[in-house]
Simulated assay, not measured.
Amino acid sequence: METLNNPLVTIATSMYNVEEYVVQNIESLLAQTYKNLEIILVDDGSPDKSGEIADFYASKDSRIKVVHQNNTGLGGGRNTAIDIATGDYITFVDADDYLCPDFVEYMLSLIITQNADMAISKNCFTTSDMEQVKTLITETYTPEKAMEEFFFPNIRLGAWNKIYSMEFLHKYSIRFVPELKTGEGLEFITRAASKANKIAVGNKKAYVYRLNNANSATTKANVERQGIGSLETMAYIGRNLSMPYPNVQLAYRWHLWNCYRYCLRQIVDSSTKKEYASLYKECISYLRHNAPSIMLSKVRFRLKVEAVAVLFSPVLYARLQIAQKKHRLNK
């Protein structure tokens, strides 16, 4: 590893069926203003030409390492990157997203100046919002505050748009749980935050999150992976994450409630009410039964309003969310 005056930063991208976007992704990594990089591209058994494209770029730039492996899922691909990384710090980029040129420079400045185990940015560009924030801020979160913000979520979920100390990840053996069907990023960041000395936080947009990838797992309705998978992930977190703080427990309960809402939306969006009749009824029952506690708890007013709407008609609200999602994608 390099000295902390010029630390080596590992950028890890796990690729699966993203040949349409991976060139823009890799080009954005190579265009970083911070040059002391190790770029790990994991071809996670991709059936398209993603691996070939990665090999081409590796032949042009010695900072790139390519790993070809059988499909293990996003978490498994990222674990491969962690295991072979030699950087002082590591950041993850989804293969269909891309970075602004100053992303690494900005995130590195956050984590080093605050002497933190991890750093996050509250904001990111999206394919429908490319306007930069007007005023830049830097602050520090405690583990309690970070976990609360992740669960509500007031910050974009996922392991991306964040940077981690490699020494910290190794010290606490923090890895992704490959068995999780979805939400592996939420599990990773909440567990990391729970162990961190502190979390450096900025608000500058330097990461571009793609909303219009028709092949993305979060774009298409999928009851098994997205709906049931999200509930399984929350159950896993509930069993394994230490949450001694009342505010974190409240945020966790809200997120679990929201996952039931998400699961119902997957069923409605995929028109599989008959196939998942028992789960459909369970979601409606859970949402209505727990909506009053959400309404009476110390959550933001907008969340209280959503709870009222769900209590009135969970299915109607699910259809409204589906329509809003399609509108955003069309934009």
Rank of each mutant, 00 (worst) to 15 (best):
residue 171 K to S: 13
residue 172 Y to G: 08
residue 172 Y to E: 08
residue 173 S to I: 00
residue 175 R to G: 05
residue 176 F to K: 02
residue 176 F to D: 02
residue 177 V to L: 13
residue 179 E to T: 12
residue 180 L to Q: 10
residue 181 K to P: 05
residue 181 K to E: 12
residue 181 K to S: 09
residue 183 G to W: 00
residue 184 E to I: 04
residue 184 E to N: 08
residue 184 E to M: 08
residue 185 G to M: 04
residue 186 L to S: 10
residue 186 L to C: 13
residue 187 E to K: 04
residue 188 F to E: 02
residue 188 F to Q: 00
residue 190 T to Q: 07
residue 190 T to G: 07
residue 191 R to K: 12
residue 192 A to G: 02
residue 192 A to D: 00
residue 194 S to H: 11
residue 194 S to K: 10
residue 195 K to T: 05
residue 196 A to Q: 01
residue 197 N to Q: 11
residue 200 A to K: 00
residue 201 V to M: 08
residue 203 N to D: 14
residue 204 K to I: 15
residue 204 K to N: 14
residue 206 A to L: 11
residue 207 Y to N: 09
residue 208 V to S: 11
residue 209 Y to I: 12
residue 209 Y to S: 13
residue 211 L to Q: 03
residue 211 L to D: 00
residue 214 A to F: 08
residue 214 A to Q: 14
residue 217 A to Q: 12
residue 218 T to A: 11
residue 220 K to P: 01
residue 220 K to G: 01
residue 221 A to N: 04
residue 222 N to V: 02
residue 222 N to S: 13
residue 222 N to Y: 04
residue 223 V to C: 06
residue 225 R to A: 10
residue 226 Q to N: 15
residue 226 Q to V: 05
residue 228 I to E: 11
residue 228 I to M: 14
residue 231 L to P: 03
residue 233 T to L: 05
residue 234 M to R: 00
residue 234 M to C: 03
residue 235 A to Y: 08
residue 236 Y to N: 07
residue 239 R to S: 14
residue 239 R to E: 15
residue 240 N to R: 11
residue 240 N to D: 07
residue 241 L to Y: 09
residue 243 M to F: 13
residue 243 M to I: 07
residue 244 P to C: 03
residue 244 P to K: 05
residue 244 P to Y: 07
residue 245 Y to K: 12
residue 245 Y to R: 12
residue 245 Y to I: 00
residue 245 Y to D: 14
residue 246 P to D: 09
residue 247 N to P: 04
residue 249 Q to W: 04
residue 250 L to H: 09
residue 250 L to Y: 07
residue 251 A to N: 06
residue 251 A to I: 09
residue 252 Y to S: 07
residue 253 R to L: 06
residue 254 W to M: 11
residue 254 W to F: 15
residue 255 H to F: 12
residue 256 L to N: 11
residue 257 W to E: 07
residue 257 W to I: 08
residue 258 N to T: 08
residue 259 C to L: 06
residue 260 Y to D: 00
residue 261 R to K: 10
residue 261 R to F: 07
residue 263 C to F: 05
residue 264 L to Q: 01
residue 264 L to Y: 01
residue 265 R to G: 05
residue 266 Q to D: 09
residue 267 I to W: 03
residue 268 V to K: 03
residue 269 D to V: 06
residue 270 S to M: 01
residue 270 S to V: 01
residue 270 S to I: 00
residue 273 K to W: 08
residue 274 K to I: 12
residue 275 E to L: 10
residue 276 Y to M: 06
residue 276 Y to Q: 06
residue 279 L to C: 03
residue 279 L to R: 02
residue 279 L to F: 02
residue 280 Y to S: 04
residue 280 Y to P: 01
residue 281 K to S: 15
residue 281 K to F: 13
residue 281 K to L: 15
residue 282 E to L: 13
residue 284 I to D: 05
residue 285 S to A: 12
residue 286 Y to C: 04
residue 287 L to C: 13
residue 287 L to P: 01
residue 287 L to D: 05
residue 288 R to F: 00
residue 288 R to D: 00
residue 289 H to P: 03
